[in-house]
């Protein structure tokens, strides 16, 4: 299992945007992100992962993990904390404090042979990590705001699942499933989304988050779950689509529409959203953005502005990232008795 490498990328800036101010979105302190990684290292060590690659950051997460490693007693085998894998910090590259840092770190992890990549962040971080992960299985854990794609899950349990897949004890087949993806194209630029694409009448990317449904005119979703948070929850209540169904769903959004859905479009914000015509998105089919100009938000964050004549399009793709399904992995582990030990 010498090649059982797991990459962990944590976004130091997730969970800090304007939604702390305009809604009551949660704050995920740096110290807790570092603690999650420590708990995950314990779990990864317990199932035999030898090496972990961790991104470096200027937000204090990697520094905190480095400190924790220094404070641990020498690798003493079984104990309350158990054996940790060797941790290699991916330093030596410039840190820009932008999403590019996540892309760079994930690429380096892929190149170094990581078998699973865990990302800590919100939907935005998962989206960026997914764009660079290629065929390596991704496990997205929530430390952000709108957490539809990444799961809110105990890091120890996620670490066990990541470790069982990375070491090959649980086969990827049936426990790692491919996600859908939305591809937006506007005037030569392209973006992807894992959950939703929203077209907004705002003129600028500005504070990025979308929390005012009156500005949204069109919505595209890879999946729409009735218990989601964020814009996809609107269609989750009207016409749910699961993550595993091949199609997606799109709708026109209009404040004065007869049909209104009371939806949790951001943490602490439950508002009526007017929904017009609803359509199915089949894989590969191209859908036009109807507005002449505005901003396109991917997974809840305004990302692209477009001008008259650019005529953006949105396409559902079936070739999204391969994602580790934590409950399925641990169910397989139970069937195979992988965590069973006999007392000597």
């Amino acid at each position: 299992m010498g090649d059982a490498i797991v990459g962990i990328v944590a976004n130091p800036l997730s969970g800090r945007d304007i939604r702390r101010l305009v809604t009551q979105a949660s704050v995920f302190p740096t110290a807790e992100k570092a603690n999650m990684i420590r708990r995950m290292l314990t779990a990864l060590g317990a199932v035999g992962v030898d090496r972990v690659l961790l991104n470096t950051d200027l937000g204090g997460i990697s520094a905190s993990v480095l400190r924790a490693i220094g404070q641990r007693p020498a690798q003493a085998g079984a104990g309350p904390d158990g054996r940790w894998p060797e941790v290699e910090f991916l330093d030596g590259h410039p840190i820009r404090q932008t999403a590019q840092d996540t892309v760079d770190a994930v690429r380096r992890m892929v190149a170094a042979g990581a078998r699973v990549i865990v990302c800590l962040g919100g939907d935005g971080t998962a989206r960026v990590a997914a764009s660079a992960v290629g065929e390596v299985p991704l496990l997205a854990l929530s430390t952000g705001t709108n957490n539809v794609f990444p799961a809110v899950r105990e890091a120890t349990v996620a670490g066990l699942a990541a470790g069982l897949v990375a070491t090959g004890q649980v086969p990827a087949e049936g426990t790692v499933s491919r996600a859908k993806l939305l591809e937006v194209r506007a005037g030569g630029r392209a973006e992807t989304a894992l959950v939703d694409v929203a077209v907004s009448t705002e003129r600028h990317v500005g504070a990025r988050a979308v929390w005012d449904p009156a500005t949204v005119t069109q919505l595209f979703c890879t999946f729409a779950e009735p218990d989601a948070i964020g814009l996809s929850s609107v269609l989750g209540q009207l016409c749910p689509v699961t993550r595993h169904e091949p199609h997606g769903v799109t709708a026109r959004i209009a404040p004065d529409a007869a049909r209104q859905v009371l939806a949790p479009i951001a943490p602490g914000l439950v508002v009526p959203v007017g929904v017009g015509e609803i359509g199915r998105m089949d894989p590969g089919s191209e859908h036009r953005v109807e507005a002449r100009a505005g901003v396109i938000a991917v997974d809840g964050e305004r990302e692209l502005t477009f001008e008259p004549g650019e005529r953006p399009t949105v396409r559902l793709r079936a070739d999204g990232p391969r994602c580790v399904d934590v409950p399925v992995v641990l169910a397989a582990s139970a069937r195979l008795g992988l965590l069973m030990r006999t007392r000597q």
Binding site: P12, R20, V27, P29, G59, V205, G206, A207
Partner: peptide, 26 residues
């Protein structure tokens, strides 16, 4: 110590937001 100054807001029970200070619109 907290790396992000905005993180301290939670301790005082107020919202704390990080903004790209180069971006007028943000």
């Amino acid at each position: 110590a907290s790396d992000n100054i905005a993180d301290r807001a939670a301790g005082f029970g107020m919202p704390g937001v990080i903004v790209d200070g180069f971006d007028f619109f943000a």
